[in-house]
């Protein structure tokens, strides 16, 4: 190929013509479409992804701006309107829409304000476990040897403790259970799963030739970890984190139901309270349960959709 020698111009070498680019568009249009870009193209057309993300966006809006959805005070109980006041399904978005509980508080308002507890615990715990578990997993996976042996056994020990039992024992010793306390307790027992996922992903990635190539260039450990390994291990971590977000929301409700959750407005507390009244006033328990189920489902569906989009096998 004598014509392949330096031309110095921007014209493509002969063999580069008609390259493997997806479409013969101008170069600017295709900029920055990496694996994430492809995954995004995939997700945009995925109905499950659209439904779950719309739901999650709605939940986030409710969390941050509850007053947009109801003017009623969730803590204000008017005994005149106690639980015998049935839901008036015609009066959409009003305080009496979903009825009142046994203390005469609006079920709808409590539903709106209860979202904050679930979302805060869900996101808070997930961020905590992703950082803590991710870090442990990354260190164990990258450095291997004795470090890995010790950290892996530590993970095994924590993994052996029943998750809910552990959090219950810890929470039981706190008289005042703020959001931070609940997040801390859930995170303390929950980080192992992400540590395992991260460790596995790092071990696979560190053997990749591009990591070897970076080492051969003399790249520092920090550079290898953050430029090469981390971006390539994020996919499985994001998937697991999204799914576990739903799980933590469910766990928070479970703890509240058992009387060991947050003090204050929360779906779990309401489900617990409503449980006692289920024979006479099903709606008190019904609506928070539905909200909880939808929320958990939305995050799990989102996780599944992201997993499918990022799975290299479907590429």
């Amino acid at each position: 190929m004598p014509d392949m020698t330096k031309s110095g111009t921007v014209t493509a070498a002969p063999d580069a013509v008609g390259a493997a680019a997806p479409a013969p568009q101008p170069l600017k249009a295709e900029k920055a479409r990496g694996l994430w870009g492809d995954a995004w193209q995939d997700l945009r057309r995925n109905k499950i992804f659209i439904v779950s993300s719309v739901l999650i966006l709605l939940l986030l809006t409710i969390t941050f701006f509850p007053s947009w959805f109801t003017s009623a005070n969730p803590a204000y109980g008017d005994l005149a309107k106690h639980y015998l006041q049935k839901p008036q399904l015609g009066k959409v978005f009003s305080a009496e829409w979903l009825g009142y509980d046994q203390q005469g508080r609006s079920v709808y308002a409590r539903l709106i304000y209860g979202a904050r507890a679930s979302i805060a615990v869900g996101f808070g715990t997930t961020i905590l476990v992703t950082i803590a578990g991710g870090l442990v997993g990354m260190i164990a996976g990258y450095f291997g040897g004795v470090v890995d042996s010790i950290l892996s056994r530590l993970v095994d020990v924590f993994f052996g403790i029943p998750f809910l039992l552990g959090t219950m024992v810890v929470l039981n010793s706190f008289p005042k259970r703020t959001t931070w306390v609940v997040i801390g307790a859930l995170g303390f027992f929950g980080w192992t799963q992400l540590a395992r996922v991260m460790r596995g992903a790092v071990i696979t990635t560190k053997q990749a030739d591009y990591v070897q190539a970076a080492k051969a260039l003399g790249a520092s450990t920090t550079r290898i970890l953050f430029r090469h390994i981390l971006p390539n291990t994020l996919a499985p971590v994001i998937v697991v984190a999204t799914i576990s977000l739903g799980v933590y929301i469910g766990a928070e409700a479970t703890l509240s139901f058992l009387g060991l959750g947050l003090n204050g407005v929360s779906w779990g507390n309401d489900i617990s309270d409503g449980g006692a009244q289920i024979r006479v006033a099903q709606w008190i328990m019904l609506y928070p349960s539905i909200m909880l189920t939808i929320t958990v489902l939305a995050f799990i569906m989102l996780g599944e959709a992201v997993r499918n989009a990022l799975d290299p096998k479907t590429r």
């Binding site: 190929m1 004598p2 002969p14 063999d15 013509v17 008609g18 390259a19 493997a20």
Partner: peptide, 12 residues
């Protein structure tokens, strides 16, 4: 010497 090479790439 240079090897004979089929120019270009297998088709998409």
């Amino acid at each position: 010497q240079e090897l004979y090479a089929i120019k270009g790439l297998p088709p998409n």
